[in-house]
């Protein structure tokens, strides 16, 4: 188990380094000089035309050095907790991100838990009642969840539930420990939208793998021993049937946190996803650089946890 954990950890570190190199290079390749943008924001236009001023700014931001050196500087600065400043809006990235990452994480974790519970339950239900009405209904819902764009579902909810029926607030976000009631009311729609895709995929995977297990010999033996349905399902079917569902969860986490860009934009939630989109629209490269890296970091970390859990649940993995 220990060697398995160490291998996974090294692997996660490798991914983070790979992603940061990729993100950094991609952003350096972007057209448009960040210094130009910075200067064009400057009020003192006269001073800005001075080439010496350019050169000073360039070395101030470390942009006069070759790209690999820039990367190493940037990377080690981040390790020390210096994430740099926004070019456009001048805020300190780390401070801004601290409040935003809490928002994105709390919404994402809630969506993830809900998608697992609901998805697995629906999957079990439609597998053991195969061909019945429940199965048909669940299959239709899962199909909608896979094929409808998240922003479209969000638009529908905002229009019908928020605007027409006035049941829930249209947008915004409040932290749960500030005002729990408002927070819950504001979170219902975004969490539903974020969780719908993962629910559908988890449900489909659970259904098909449980159906496979239901046909296996040990399940038939369990039935013929005269066990109750509950015992057969919980003790003999789920243990094997849910393995592929656990493997799928890594992708689901990527989906939830990647999708936060869309969901946070449409519900005007001050999280990381919205920060990333705003940064890209205003070409605020330092922000984009850090936020994309942080979002990936969250996903890699979550994947690591899933992998470790998988190794813990399935004893075969440890000896791979």
């Amino acid at each position: 188990m220990i060697s398995y954990i160490i291998r996974r950890l090294l692997y996660a570190v490798l991914i983070v380094i790979l992603v940061s190199v990729t993100v950094f290079t991609l952003i350096r390749l972007l057209p448009g000089d960040p210094i130009e943008i910075l200067v064009s924001q400057d009020i003192m236009q006269d001073a800005a035309r001075d080439p010496e001023y350019y050169a000073r700014l360039r070395s101030e931001y470390g942009l006069d050095k070759p790209i690999p050196i820039q990367f190493i500087n940037w990377f080690f600065k981040m390790l020390r907790g210096d994430f740099g400043k926004s070019i456009i809006r001048k805020f300190d990235i780390l401070g801004e991100m601290k409040s935003r990452i809490v928002v994105t994480l709390s919404l994402g974790i809630v969506s993830f838990i809900i998608s697992n519970v609901v998805g697995i339950l629906l999957g079990i239900l439609s597998a053991i009642r195969r061909g019945k009405i429940v199965d048909t209904v669940v299959t239709v819902i899962a199909n909608i969840g896979v094929t409808a764009p998240t922003f479209w579902i969000a638009i529908l909810l905002i229009y019908f539930i928020g605007f027409k029926l006035k049941l829930l607030p249209l947008y915004g976000y409040t932290l749960p420990w500030k005002d729990f009631g408002t927070s819950v009311r504001q979170s219902i729609m975004p969490v539903f939208v974020m969780a719908l895709g993962p629910i559908s995929m988890t449900c489909r995977q659970a259904r098909s793998s449980i159906l496979e297990v239901l046909n296996q010999d040990h399940v038939r033996t369990a039935w013929s021993k005269g066990l109750t349905e509950r015992k057969v399902i919980f003790r003999h079917v789920l243990k094997n049937g849910l393995m592929p569902v656990v493997t799928l969860q890594g992708t689901m986490i990527a989906m939830i946190f990647g999708g936060s860009a869309i969901v946070e934009t449409i519900f005007v939630i001050p999280g990381m996803g919205k920060m990333m989109v705003d940064g890209m629209l205003s070409q605020d490269y330092p922000v984009v650089q850090v936020v994309t890296l942080m979002l990936t970091f969250v996903v890699v970390l979550a994947n690591l946890l899933v992998d470790l859990m998988y190794g813990w649940i399935d004893p075969r993995i440890q000896y791979e």
Binding site: L18, F257, M280
Partner: peptide, 18 residues
């Protein structure tokens, strides 16, 4: 595996922008 684990929307946004 690593590529699959990275949220593709983030890479797509970056690349499309680039």
């Amino acid at each position: 595996d690593a590529l699959i684990a990275i949220p593709s929307l983030i890479l797509q946004l970056l690349l499309a922008n680039l």
